[in-house]
Amino acid sequence: MLIGIMSDTHDNLPAISKAIEVFNNAGVDLVLHAGDYIAPFVKKEFSKLNAPLKGVFGNNDGEREGLKNTIGVKDEILEIDADGLRIIVLHGTDEKIVEAFVKSQLYDVVIRGHTHKYEIRETGRSIVLNPGEVCGYVSGIKSVAFLDTRKREIKIIDLESGEPLGFMSL
């Protein structure tokens, strides 16, 4: 399964559109969003995805009812099993909670957002993945990630150049 991963879209419609184009061109089977969509009007862009979208709320998602009704966001934590990989998705506002999930070693991949900085790091048997920010507002880098569950690979790419920013084999 090829999973597209994004976070911190912050209503940047052109950047969201670019991320969706990249995911659709890659033929992803699923898209995971680690929070901070912001407002329900982003549904118009997300409806262009060729794959299902699952995600969690972020700390800036104020219109939660609207996001529930339009995009289907329901929780702050999402657990997924994909080709034998145990994955957890959270926004990551509280670093202690992120690190508790990592230290638990219950998950193969811990996906988080919030910091707007892309990252792949290994701690024990868990990989922490932050795809960075789609919006580009904080770091100036618009990025997304891919998790290939069959090849057991993670890569982060720059949305504007298409260049790789990070890579790890599981």
Rank of each mutant, 00 (worst) to 15 (best):
S17G: 06
K18L: 08
K18H: 00
A19F: 07
I20M: 02
I20A: 07
I20P: 03
E21C: 08
E21S: 14
E21Y: 08
V22K: 04
V22R: 10
N24W: 01
N25K: 08
N25D: 05
N25H: 00
A26K: 15
A26T: 14
G27L: 00
G27V: 00
G27D: 00
D29P: 07
D29E: 13
L30G: 14
L30V: 13
V31G: 00
L32M: 02
H33D: 01
A34H: 10
A34F: 07
A34G: 14
A34Y: 09
A34W: 12
G35V: 10
G35W: 12
G35N: 14
G35E: 13
G35Y: 09
Y37T: 05
Y37D: 01
Y37S: 03
I38P: 02
I38D: 08
I38F: 12
I38R: 09
A39K: 06
P40G: 12
P40L: 08
P40Y: 07
P40R: 10
F41G: 01
V42N: 11
K44P: 02
K44M: 04
E45V: 00
E45T: 01
F46A: 04
F46W: 08
F46I: 03
K48V: 05
K48T: 13
K48Y: 12
L49S: 10
L49G: 15
N50S: 15
A51R: 07
A51N: 07
A51I: 09
P52S: 01
L53C: 07
L53G: 04
L53D: 01
L53Q: 06
K54E: 11
G55S: 02
G55H: 01
G55P: 03
G55M: 03
V56T: 09
V56G: 04
V56P: 05
V56S: 06
F57V: 09
F57Q: 05
F57E: 10
G58D: 03
D61H: 04
E63G: 05
R64Y: 03
E65P: 02
E65A: 07
G66P: 12
G66W: 03
L67M: 13
L67D: 14
L67Y: 09
N69V: 00
N69E: 08
N69C: 02
I71F: 04
I71Q: 03
G72I: 05
G72N: 11
V73L: 15
K74A: 14
K74H: 11
K74Y: 12
K74E: 15
E76H: 13
E76A: 04
E76K: 07
E76Q: 09
E76C: 02
I77W: 04
L78H: 06
L78I: 03
L78Y: 13
L78E: 10
E79R: 11
E79M: 05
E79K: 14
